[in-house]
Nucleic acid binder design. Structure first.
Lengths: 204, 204
DNA sequence: TTATTTATACAGACTAGATGGTATAAATAT
DNA sequence: ATATTTATACCATCTAGTCTGTATAAATAA
């Protein structure tokens, strides 16, 4: 056959993601990508038929990784008896993952894309929405189990509780980026677990 | 004297902000701005000597508005005796402001700029950082007073507590934008106040 | 074995249009 | 009379995307 193109494709995706997170998608030119990767235009357009095809591949890869982490976290933290323990462990899993990173978190493509939706087609924007919703439904599942055995110490809005993890995560990424504070996300998510601990009390 | 240019400048800033929040800064061309405002290139470059001068003006105007809201909120909510009440009222002020909007919140320029820092010069990026820090120090002030009269029901990290408002706000904006759910921010911030209520207990 | 084919992977010049920005002269408003 | 705005032509550079050609390596056939 021919030489293996996978490393090249991987290199393009890696460097493109980094560039997009620093300049935005529209602010990232193909020439910049070529410079950063050391490949040529021919190679780039062999792997991606257009810039928007790259945008799609970037978000699809990011979504894959995101889902993968989510499932790993779910599997690693499902407790047999106590659903609150599972919930706290799930959040703690992500806290731990963040803590183990030795560099600043490079940023979330959902947020990046969401602040320039006009640069993308419907398909891409829909994928971002779906991914956000996936987080909501995942927490819905975890919280439903908690509410079977626990009640809340004060009255709260049940629905929006499912979005709090993503809210805090995304918000903390922005703080972390602008202030270049690596531990921002870890600290912020810890408060989410504090909230859960204070909020839920065993039924009866 | 001569005719007044202020309305034109205001129009440029208004429409540019909207465009930047939808396409990003790099994704917004001057031609797009001309089309949207109905003015000509001559008029644009009469008011802004370059595109980056517009970027600076946009963030400066946004920062002004942000500070103005912050001060109004502080003044409207300073309670004489109870610092916890002030804190809760300060958050509630923003919840209320969000609730009174009849359209979807168009987005935060801090977040927009922070996801394409490579498009801006140091001066602009520094202004964004400063603005984020301003929120931190503001909450530091409010929380310091709370900690004089209250203690926490569980052990928490005091420092990062000052960033939680901005974290939740920024994160909820992203959710609100992608899912086009107007009330996301209101609901998320309510959980912050819930947390504060549960966390703080009067000293002795 | 060796020559040839074939599919894949890449190189780099080239193009048409977009981009930010300039220049200029006339028109418009106060 | 002066600041503002229009209208339009223009420029250098950047942009995404195309094109033709070439290198690679495995499969095939002699």
């Amino acid at each position: 056959m021919a030489r293996d193109g996978k490393p090249t494709r991987k290199l393009i995706l890696e460097q493109s993601r980094a560039l997009v997170l620093e300049h935005g998608y529209a602010g990232t030119s193909i020439d910049q990508i070529l410079e950063r990767t050391g490949i040529t235009k021919g190679a780039f357009f062999y792997h991606f038929k257009s810039k928007s095809a790259l945008a799609l591949a970037l978000i699809e890869e990011f979504i894959q990784e995101d889902k993968s982490h989510m499932h790993t976290a779910l599997n690693d933290t499902e407790s047999t008896d106590d659903p609150l323990e599972s919930l706290l462990a799930f959040v703690a899993w992500h806290i731990n993952a963040m803590q183990e990173m030795d560099e600043l978190f490079p940023g979330c493509l959902y947020a990046s894309y969401s602040y320039e939706p006009g640069s993308f087609n419907q398909e891409i924007n829909d994928k971002v929405s779906e991914s956000i919703l996936k987080w909501r439904t995942t927490f819905d599942g975890l919280l439903d189990k908690v509410f079977e055995k626990y009640t809340t110490s004060i009255k709260v809005d049940r629905q929006s509780l499912s979005d709090l993890f993503l809210s805090i995560s995304e918000g903390s990424y922005i703080i972390s980026r602008t202030l270049k504070e690596k531990d921002a996300t870890v600290n912020q998510l810890q408060h989410l677990n504090n909230y859960f601990k204070l909020l839920f009390v065993p039924k009866k």
